[in-house]
Write a protein that binds this DNA or RNA. Structure first.
Length: 214
DNA sequence: TTCGGTCTAGGGTACTGTGG
DNA sequence: CCACAGTACCCTAGACCGAA
């Protein structure tokens, strides 16, 4: 289903700020649109990277992210209160999470389930995800911070039970956005060990989330 | 001894970026 | 455009170790 978007541009727009490109898109500049998509393609892929999918195409998540990006371009208002990048990140994340929530709503269809670090933790609630909790998302509201800390303790405790020391270390660095190579250097291990540890983490999290939510 | 968990290692696929 | 290298991800087999 992956749709290929041509990125061959007639002119070089690499120095143009995002916000200006968005304005250009509004007045029908296709090159500006392609440039924005090209500019944010890796960003969307990175955003989608932490998702683990059972029985589905990884590319689907990227496609959802790209839809979120398109919505960001369509809806962005340059009121100087926030950058396009921040707005795009919000839209991409929300689009992916919405897709996941839609998929996981069909509880009795395992093959339609996403098992992800970004899966919403509690079915009845919110967009708060495992990734948010583990990764220590920035929370400013005191009440929310309190709730967040309780969730963090619960999940962190479970992680401590489930994962070995190496697996925990690898996961934390991975969530920091480090590459396999960087994690390997930090932990004085072979890249292969990092790879293996991450696979075990994913399997354990999949099992944990399945046991908990299905 | 058996079993389950942890870890290493080999090998495969898919994707991306780069250089000719 | 194509070949190639690097990277991420996944699967599997086997060694090792501790608990039952």
């Amino acid at each position: 289903m992956a749709m290929e978007i041509p990125v061959t541009l007639e002119r070089d727009l690499s120095d143009i700020p995002d916000e200006l490109l968005v304005e250009c898109v509004r007045i029908g500049d296709d090159d500006a649109l392609l440039s924005l998509i090209h500019r944010y393609k890796s960003f969307v892929r990175g955003k989608a990277r932490s998702y683990f999918l059972i029985g589905a195409d990884r590319e689907d998540i990227v496609q959802e992210g790209m839809i979120g990006l398109y919505k960001a371009i369509r809806d962005f208002r340059d009121d100087k209160l926030s950058s396009f990048k921040a707005f795009a990140e919000l839209c991409v994340t929300r689009q992916i999470i919405t897709a996941i929530k839609t998929a996981t709503r069909q509880k009795h269809v395992p093959l339609n389930s996403y098992i992800s670090l970004d899966k919403p933790i509690y079915e009845e609630d919110s967009d708060r995800t495992l990734m948010d909790v583990i990764g220590g998302a920035r929370v400013t509201d005191p009440e929310e911070l309190f709730i967040h800390q309780e969730e963090f303790s619960a999940i962190e405790g479970k992680m401590a039970e489930l994962l070995s020391g190496l697996e925990r270390d690898v996961l934390m660095l991975y969530l920091d956005g480090r590459s396999y190579q960087e994690i390997a250097e930090d932990l004085q291990r072979h890249v292969k060990s990092i790879d293996n540890a991450l696979q075990r983490v994913k399997r354990k999290l999949e099992k944990y989330l399945e046991d908990r939510f299905l």
